[in-house]
Amino acid sequence: MTPRSALAALGLATACALPLPGLASPCEDIAHEGLSYTICEVDPAADDLRLFLTDDDGGLYGSFQAIDRAASGEALVFAMNAGMYHPDRRPVGHYLEEGKEVMRLVTNAGPGNFGMLPNGVFCIGGASARVIETLRYEAEAPECRYATQSGPMLVIDGDLHPRFLPDSTSRHIRNGVGTTEAGDRAVFVIANQPVTFHEFGSVFRDALDLPQALYFDGNVSRLHAPGLGRSDFGFAMGPIVGVLSPVDETRPGG
């Protein structure tokens, strides 16, 4: 079964995305330990990697399509949901957009996956993108253009989160991001079938060799990968991470 047909079998909504002529896709499907994942690798120094929450009028984007409509002469070549949010779609944890703090850093333990410490922050700087454990982020106070806090951490200094169990039976579609320590490589991953935390974290550690990785969410996990002909849709989202690239405005639909 292909990743696309597996998603359809689970009742997850996907749509055919408009191909972007002349633009290489940063995404590909991989298999790890018999399970299927889609990964999207980004070069933070070369790619226009951003977080999206509010538009120029202060409204919430909520969807990949809304970002595309607002991006004059540009389009998303990759995007996914990027952190947990309240029913009003405001971020649960720390959130920065263009250097402006929307939500403060949350350092205490709490309910749910977000509060399963250690959690972490995905920080996009001038030419780097790093996953940083929350207390380390607080101590280092790195300069971030964008930042989103989520949890739990999937991989911490090369080790899986201590609470992940190899024999867990809790499976969900999950998505997250992993980075190198230097922040020169960021890889976003979404599972194409329900997986455990242990299975998901292992992709970053063992298949991608990334020492730091952060969970974004489960159940609501969605991916926009027009190069693969995929753009998931459903309920409106909160924070979204994506890469914008110039497109030929004369293309159909441009």
Score class of each variant (00 low, 15 high):
residue 90 R to I: 07
residue 147 A to P: 04
residue 142 P to Y: 02
residue 127 A to V: 10
residue 101 E to D: 09
residue 94 H to A: 11
residue 153 M to P: 00
residue 119 N to H: 15
residue 136 R to H: 13
residue 76 L to W: 02
residue 133 E to A: 07
residue 73 G to S: 08
residue 133 E to G: 02
residue 87 P to S: 11
residue 99 G to M: 11
residue 84 M to N: 05
residue 153 M to L: 13
residue 141 A to T: 14
residue 143 E to A: 09
residue 133 E to M: 04
residue 146 Y to F: 15
residue 123 C to T: 03
residue 81 N to C: 09
residue 79 A to M: 08
residue 128 S to C: 05
residue 96 L to N: 01
residue 96 L to R: 05
residue 166 P to S: 13
residue 104 R to Y: 06
residue 86 H to R: 15
residue 98 E to Q: 14
residue 158 G to L: 10
residue 92 V to N: 00
residue 164 F to A: 11
residue 148 T to K: 00
residue 163 R to V: 11
residue 143 E to W: 08
residue 165 L to V: 13
residue 106 V to Y: 01
residue 161 H to D: 08
residue 89 R to M: 10
residue 131 V to L: 06
residue 98 E to A: 15
residue 157 D to C: 11
residue 142 P to N: 09
residue 140 E to K: 13
residue 137 Y to I: 04
residue 152 P to W: 02
residue 131 V to H: 00
residue 122 F to G: 03
residue 116 M to I: 11
residue 101 E to W: 06
residue 81 N to L: 03
residue 146 Y to L: 03
residue 158 G to E: 05
residue 162 P to G: 12
residue 75 A to I: 08
residue 137 Y to F: 15
residue 75 A to E: 01
residue 153 M to H: 00
residue 74 E to K: 13
residue 101 E to F: 08
residue 90 R to T: 15
residue 87 P to Q: 09
residue 145 R to H: 14
residue 76 L to M: 12
residue 167 D to H: 13
residue 166 P to E: 14
residue 157 D to R: 15
residue 159 D to T: 14
residue 102 V to G: 04
residue 148 T to D: 00
residue 77 V to T: 12
residue 127 A to T: 14
residue 112 G to S: 10
residue 135 L to E: 09
residue 169 T to R: 15
